[in-house]
Design a protein around this nucleic acid. Structure first.
Lengths: 227, 227
DNA sequence: AAGTAACCGTTACCTCAAGTAACACTTACC
DNA sequence: GGTAAGTGTTACTTGAGGTAACGGTTACTT
C-alpha cells in the first residue's frame, strides 16, 4: 500500500473544468430557449435546445431552480460587466450618475427577454430562499451603500441612511426601468437623464443640508481627504 | 308565450351577491392558508382551509392565477385603504411625504406574509399578463404621476419627468420596504424619515432648479392657482 | 305540483412538467 | 483489465393543477 502518500486519484480532477464549461453551455441553451419560446420554457425545452435529453441536464443541475439560479448568475455577470466600470469610474458627479443609470438601462434594453425571465420570470418553485434577483440587487445596493456611507462619513454626516438609501436608489432605477421596458415611451437617454436629475437633486440636497455646496459638473471626491 | 315582456328569470339574479361573498370568503381562506403554511400553498390547501374540496374552489375561480389575482386585488384594497388618505391629504409637504411612505410601510409590516405571497410569491403560471403587483404599482404610480405632473405644470416646468419619476418613487419605496422587511434593522419611523428625506430633497431640488423656494414645513399648494 | 336553474358538495379521474431509475457506452487514469 | 468519472438514452414515478360525473338543495317558474 505504499501509495506515494496522497494523490487523490486524478480521475476525479480530470473533469473539474469540463463540468463548469458544460454548465455554462446549458445556461446559454436556456437563454437561447427563453429567447425562442418565451419565458415559460420547461426543462424539456431547455434540454432540447441544448440537443440533449433531460437527465443530462439533471446531472449538472440538481434542480430547475438550480439551473435558473445559474442563469441568474450569468445575468448578474453581464450586468456587472457594464455596471462595474460605471460604478467605479470617477468624473463629474452628475455624469457619473447618468452613466451608472444608463449602464443599467442599456443592459435591460439589450436583453429584455432574459431580463424578464430572470426578474419577473417563472422561478416557479423557488422556496423563497436563493432569490438571484434579490442577491443581485443586494450586491449593487451594498456597493452603493459603501460609497454613500463613505461620502457621508467623510462629510461627517449621519451615515445611517446609507443602506436604506442605497436600496431605495436601486429600486428606483429598477422600477423605472421596468416601466420603460414595457411601454417604451421615451428614449433611453431621456430616461437616464430624468432619473439622474432626481438622484442628483437628492444627493445635492443631502450635501446642502450638511452645508456643502457641490457642483454637479465637478468630480465630487471628498474621499481624497482620507489619503 | 305572453311572458310579461322580459323578466330575465330571477333565478339567475338570485345569487349575484352571494357569489361575490363566496369569492371573498375564499380569498380570506387563501390569506389564512398563506399565513399558516407559508407562501407555497396549493389549491388543495386553500380548499381545505376553507373547509371545502377543490372543485368548489374551481366553481368560483377559473384558475389558480384567478384566485391569486383576487387575493392581489384584496391586498390592493387594503393598501389603498391606508394609502389613499395619505395621498390625498394636504399639509406640510414633508410631513405629507412621511405619511405616504409610512402608510405603505405600515401595511407591509402588518401583513408581511400576504405581502411576500403577493409580490414575490408563487404566481406560478401567470402568463406575464395580469400581474397584480404591476397593476398596483401602476395604480399608485399613476396617481403620483398625476400629482407630480400637475405641480410641474403649475410651476411651468417640464412635466415630461412626471411619469418616470412617479415610477421611480414607487420602486424606491417598495425596494427599501423589501429590504427593511427582511432584515428589520431600523424602526419603521426611522426608515420613513430617511426615505422622506431623500424624496423631499429630490422634490426640493426640482423646485429650486425652477427658481422656487419651498418650505418643507409648509403645505405646498400651488395647485390652488388653478381655482 | 312539477320542472328547472342556479347553487352546494363529493370522489375519482386526467394531464403535464418536474424529477428519477435503470441501463448501456466511452474515455483515460490506475 | 479494473474502475471512476462522464456520455447519453428510454421509460418511469410523483405531485399539483385542473376536470368529469355524479347526487343533493333551494326557490323561482310554469
Amino acid at each position: 500500500m505504499a501509495r506515494t502518500v496522497k494523490g487523490p486519484d486524478a480521475r476525479r480532477e480530470r473533469w473539474k473544468g469540463h463540468r463548469e464549461q458544460r454548465r455554462a453551455e446549458f445556461v446559454e441553451a436556456t437563454i437561447a430557449a427563453v429567447a425562442k419560446k418565451g419565458p415559460d420554457v420547461g426543462m424539456e425545452d431547455v434540454a432540447a435546445e441544448a440537443g440533449v435529453s433531460k437527465p443530462v441536464l439533471y446531472r449538472h443541475f440538481t434542480d430547475k431552480s438550480d439551473l435558473y439560479l445559474a442563469v441568474g448568475q450569468k445575468a448578474t455577470e453581464m450586468l456587472m460587466e457594464r455596471m462595474g466600470p460605471a460604478l467605479a469610474a470617477d468624473g463629474p458627479i452628475r455624469d457619473r450618475i447618468v452613466r451608472i443609470v444608463d449602464a443599467y438601462l442599456s443592459v435591460i434594453e439589450d436583453n429584455p427577454n432574459l431580463y424578464r425571465f430572470v426578474v419577473k420570470g417563472s422561478f416557479v418553485d423557488r422556496p423563497v430562499e436563493k432569490d438571484v434577483v434579490q442577491e443581485d440587487k443586494n450586491l449593487i445596493a451594498n456597493t452603493l451603500a459603501r460609497i454613500l456611507g463613505d461620502y457621508l462619513r467623510a462629510f461627517e454626516m449621519d451615515s445611517g441612511g446609507a443602506e436604506p438609501w442605497a436600496h431605495a436608489l436601486v429600486g428606483m432605477v429598477q422600477n423605472a426601468g421596468d416601466w420603460w421596458l414595457d411601454r417604451q415611451t421615451m428614449s433611453r437617454a431621456n430616461l437616464s437623464d430624468y432619473l439622474a436629475t432626481i438622484i442628483w437633486h437628492a444627493v445635492d440636497g443631502l450635501l446642502r443640508s450638511a452645508g456643502v455646496q457641490a457642483d454637479p459638473a465637478k468630480p465630487l471626491t471628498p474621499l481624497r481627504l482620507v489619503d
